[in-house]
Design a protein around this nucleic acid. Sequence first.
DNA 1: CGAGCCCTTGAAACTCGTCAATGATCGTGG
DNA 2: CCACGATCATTGACGAGTTTCAAGGGCTCG
Lengths: 242, 242
Amino acid sequence: MDNVLVKKLQGYARLCEEDQRVLNAVVRDVRTVPAHTDLAREGEKSAFVHLVLEGFACRYKFTAEGNRQIMAFLVPGDFCDLHVVVLKQMDHSIGTISPCKVVDIPHEQILALLQRPRLSLAMLCAALVDSAVLREWLVNVGQRGARQRLGHVFCELLLRLRIVGLADNGYELPLSQTDLADTIGTSSVHLNRVLQELRQENLISWKGETLAIHDIDRLMKLSGFNSNYLHIGMQGADESAL
Amino acid sequence: MDNVLVKKLQGYARLCEEDQRVLNAVVRDVRTVPAHTDLAREGEKSAFVHLVLEGFACRYKFTAEGNRQIMAFLVPGDFCDLHVVVLKQMDHSIGTISPCKVVDIPHEQILALLQRPRLSLAMLCAALVDSAVLREWLVNVGQRGARQRLGHVFCELLLRLRIVGLADNGYELPLSQTDLADTIGTSSVHLNRVLQELRQENLISWKGETLAIHDIDRLMKLSGFNSNYLHIGMQGADESAL
DNA sequence: CGAGCCCTTGAAACTCGTCAATGATCGTGG
DNA sequence: CCACGATCATTGACGAGTTTCAAGGGCTCG
């Protein structure tokens, strides 16, 4: 039974058995973290890289006025803060949204992973895709209306969660409406109204923590969603690179 | 006389003489590119990594509705598309804004640079800072009003251009108002009005291509600017890392 | 049963976008 | 040398999208 990390990284490079064994070894001391708990805080430097195995976490930052922007969702299989290996301090915070299972990985272990060419390539790809996602979010918030923005987020999560086997035509979305509002940069009041529009048009339903997408094609078209930025299914590209 | 690349990377790691020599060797065949010319296009895969030596370029993307979002400014010393070494295709485009001097660097030469530990560390840092900038832009567009957003961009460019010796209390800003509008996600009409407010409050002046910032402290405070995300002056952090 | 959190709704105010028109500047060709 | 077109900056008026304030209802959990 492969863990989500293996599942995800295999999308970027052909991992050999030993690569997979090493990855599975990293996922030993799993820790359960309650919802709404910080894994890393702006200004600090963590001794560990955090990996999410279950649940939703996020990258976020508060403005001087006290408004929160969520800058990334961290779903099972995602490294939260690979950059702490190199940078002196965090420039943003990372916190859980739902209860999570996470692994704290010491720097040396990360460096060991990077010694293996295929793993290194896969992790680099994953990091580059994270950047690509971030760019798309900027486009989303900068150029699209609230309806489109919301739909876009739903589409992206669907594809990302499918990669790790956590979605079919819907998925568990353990967010509050306020979380979503802070993601797409609207007030929670407005988010609520937009959400109801999507529901009434029979595009989605969202009860409890379960999101169902009824017409993904229409939702994608409506929100201007193009999946190319996720670089899905292009096996690591240049394997000669590293 | 050091080139801008050396100047920038020295901010991230102590480069030895040989490192600098290698970098200077990379900056050989400088090419002059007119304004408004694409260096790389969404969907393609370039054989070269592009480095800006003079002028302004940008990362951008069009939405399905034909709106443009600028996702990054590429100023002298910036690599445009290091990721093409690894990923199969571009998920966004890169184009010049003003006339530029750029270098086309073949993949092998990039890989050669990465063989040198200090250079590798410095380039990694630069890439991580690029991501940090991107995150801050998302916060900017998602959470701040147009005044703040505009001020924030002006502040950031001031600090970034100072690193490569191209700014004191102002700098050459060869952008159209439309470019700026596409950066902060407003209409050009609205941008124009906000710009005039900043001028009337004696915060800035901008004639021709020269931007002067009259009161950087007040501008930073007004726009909620905190420079920590630029990671300036923290010499590469963990030099043991790589 | 009460406290707290989240979702929902309404009304009023405001930021910002769109449309449209007028100037200003600049390079090009007649 | 001037006329022309093109690009960019500016302005006004109007409307749409969004925020804010305020209040009420439902749910969970101790």
